[in-house]
Structures are given as structure tokens and as C-alpha cells.
């Protein structure tokens, strides 16, 4: 396999595909925040029954495998009604929504912790919610590769498409390696950013 071919065609396609992964992840995270924060509030401020109910729902969301939820949405709840309008979920939206149970459960857990910190008079402790959500975002980016299974043209689809045309394992490994590097760089930068945020907040917490 010629490296020139990789740089000329494959890498730009992969970067374009990865943009879809980030698009999916941003939607999933925003929807997760929208669903998860009320559950966090319910678990923290609610009465015994509402706390129990919220805990059950969050446990179910935590247990639902993204891959299965994605196929469930694709085959069972493809068309949704919103204010009387029938909307058909696109592939990107289907994957994003399938990641919402994870994202919402994570937000609810991190949110409860943040509220506890806030209640204990530690706003900086509560701010640890931000690096936690950053971590969730990168987990979602990696999980969004599941979209390849339903034909959404994202990063993993590009890697698979390119590798399918190559005859030898060696050539395929080059394609896979480029994929890992391109997915890995933003992930590692993001995780480093998260660790820096945590360190900064921790330092200020100690200082406070």
C-alpha cells in the first residue's frame, strides 16, 4: 500500500468521518445533560419514593448496552412524534440517542456528587463535574464508532471501507494504525485537559 495514497485520500476522508463522531457525541452529551441533570436533582432533593424511582431509572439507563439500544431505536422507534409532527430519526440522531442512556446516567451520578459538594459548601468540589463530563464526552466519542454497524458514514466506517479493499493484513494494519492515531490524539489531549482541570481544581480546593 502506498503511503501517499493514505495521505491523499484516506486521511481526509477519515477526518471528515471523525467530524461525524464528534457531532454524534456533542448531541448525545447535550441530550444526556438534559435528561441526567433532572435525575441528579431528583436523587438529591427528592423524597424517598422519587429518590428510589430515580435510582431505578438511572440503574436501567446504566445497564442498557449502547449497541442494543441503537438497534432498538433503529428498528422499533424510528419514527417519533413531536408536537403532532412525525419525525424520522436520521442515522446520526439514532446513534446519538442510543448514547443518551449512558450519558444521562453518567451525568446523574456526577451531578449528585456535584450537588453534595455544593451542599457541603465546596463550589470548587462541585466544579469537578466539568472534568467528569469531559471524560464522559471522550468515552462517547469512542463509543460513537458503533454507528458503523448501521451504515452511518463516520470515522470507523471510513477505516473499515478502506481496509476492506486491501488484500493483506499488513496493509490493513497500516490503515488501522492511522485510525488509532487520529482517534487517539484528540482523546489523549482531552484526557490531559481533564487531568489538568482536576489538578487545578484540586489545588484550589486545598488552597481554599
Amino acid at each position: 500500500m502506498k503511503l501517499a495514497g493514505i495521505w491523499a485520500d484516506y486521511v481526509p476522508s477519515l477526518l471528515a468521518g471523525m467530524a461525524t463522531n464528534f457531532e454524534i457525541s456533542i448531541i448525545a452529551l447535550l441530550l444526556g445533560l438534559l435528561v441526567g441533570i433532572p435525575f441528579a436533582a431528583l436523587r438529591f432533593y427528592g423524597g424517598r419514593a422519587s429518590v428510589a424511582l430515580a435510582a431505578i431509572v438511572v440503574s436501567l439507563m446504566r445497564a442498557a448496552p449502547t449497541f442494543v439500544v441503537m438497534f432498538f431505536l433503529l428498528n422499533v422507534v424510528r419514527d417519533v412524534s413531536l408536537f403532532g409532527m412525525k419525525l424520522t430519526m436520521s442515522g446520526v440522531m439514532t446513534v446519538a440517542v442510543s448514547l443518551v442512556p449512558y450519558s444521562a446516567a453518567y451525568t446523574a451520578d456526577a451531578g449528585v456528587d456535584a450537588l453534595r459538594q455544593w451542599d457541603r459548601g465546596s463550589p470548587l468540589g462541585a466544579l469537578l463535574f466539568l472534568p467528569n463530563i469531559t471524560r464522559a464526552f471522550f468515552v462517547i466519542v469512542m463509543a460513537s464508532g458503533a454507528a458503523a454497524a448501521i451504515g452511518v458514514p463516520e470515522g470507523i466506517s471510513v477505516i473499515l471501507r478502506e481496509s476492506a479493499l486491501l488484500p493483506t493484513l499488513g496493509d490493513r494494519l497500516v490503515v488501522f494504525a492511522v485510525g488509532i492515531v487520529l482517534f487517539g490524539v484528540p482523546l489523549q489531549i482531552g484526557l490531559a485537559l481533564m487531568r489538568w482541570l482536576q489538578r487545578e481544581l484540586g489545588r484550589r480546593l486545598v488552597g481554599a
Binding site: A143, S144, S163
Partner: peptide, 10 residues
């Protein structure tokens, strides 16, 4: 860590 699970499976 840098490889999405689907890619690792592949």
C-alpha cells in the same frame, strides 16, 4: 485506550 471498541474488535 485510543482505539474505539469497534475498531479493536475489527
Amino acid at each position: 485506550q485510543s482505539s474505539p471498541i469497534v475498531l479493536t474488535l475489527v
